[in-house]
């Protein structure tokens, strides 16, 4: 810490808003006065995206596809409807497409123009997804990007990159890890990571403890998401 605390404390201790905080408050004031927004609704949206919507939703979709062939086929045909059947519906009326990893093809999702992302199943995107570094490089050098995430694929595996738009968002369905035949759908969901549904990572192996896990150890995953 190099903060200087030697200045005299004889001034009035007033508050300071940073320029962006003040500007957002101004927008909220103007929009409220015009009747275009309701501050309570704004708080509800923040609460939803900070605490209720997140990649555990997507993990449930993937785990169901892994354990229910009929659901997997529905997901492949009409992901918007299949995902909505689990209670996850888009706010912007966007369509969903599920892209399935196979031994030959690995799928990777990006939004080159801005930051379109399947909010309903993954929540708000991580900082790196919105970074120009990722948005530009995922298309040019997907294998290099995957390596930076520690995801090394066989040279023979083709990497297919999907560019999201405002109307169409992608969910990667990773391959079900081996030796998981005995696991329940809830147990399978615990193996699904956020990055495995973007394509920058792979699912966890059974028994693996990882900081990428969406459910903390000991949490049975019931009633979450």
């Amino acid at each position: 810490m190099t903060h200087d605390h030697d200045h005299p404390h004889d001034h009035h201790h007033d508050n300071d808003l940073d320029p962006f905080a003040a500007r957002v408050r101004a927008l909220e004031t103007i929009l409220t006065e015009k009747g275009l927004i309701d501050p309570a609704a704004i708080d509800a949206i923040i609460e939803t995206y900070e605490h209720k919507v997140g990649p555990r939703n997507g993990a449930r979709v993937v785990a169901k596809a892994w354990s229910d062939q009929g659901f997997a086929e529905w997901l492949a045909e009409d992901a918007t409807a299949a995902i909505a059947s689990l209670g996850y519906t888009g706010r912007q009326g966007e369509h969903m497409q599920a892209v399935f990893n196979t031994p030959d093809t690995h799928n990777l999702v990006v939004c080159t123009l801005c930051s379109c992302y399947p909010w309903t199943v993954l929540g708000v995107p991580p900082v790196w997804y919105k970074a120009p570094a990722y948005r530009s490089r995922a298309v040019i050098d997907p294998r290099g990007v995957l390596a930076e995430f520690g995801t090394i694929l066989p040279e023979t595996t083709r990497i297919r990159v999907w560019d999201s738009t405002a109307e169409l968002r992608y969910l990667v369905v990773p391959m079900r890890p081996e030796e998981t035949g005995h696991l329940s759908e809830d147990e399978l969901a615990r193996l699904v990571t956020r990055d495995s549904m973007i394509g920058t990572g792979l699912p966890l192996r059974p028994g693996a403890l990882s900081p990428d896990a969406l459910w903390p150890a000991g949490d049975d995953g019931e009633g979450r998401g």
Binding site: E28, L31, L36, D43, V124, V127, A131, A213
Partner: peptide, 27 residues
Amino acid sequence: LPPDAGPDAPVFAEPWQAQAFALAVAL
């Protein structure tokens, strides 16, 4: 790439970011 803060990191770095996000969604 910027370092990833992991799946449990705060969704928004500062409250004004959450408010700006929600304003666009609401409008």
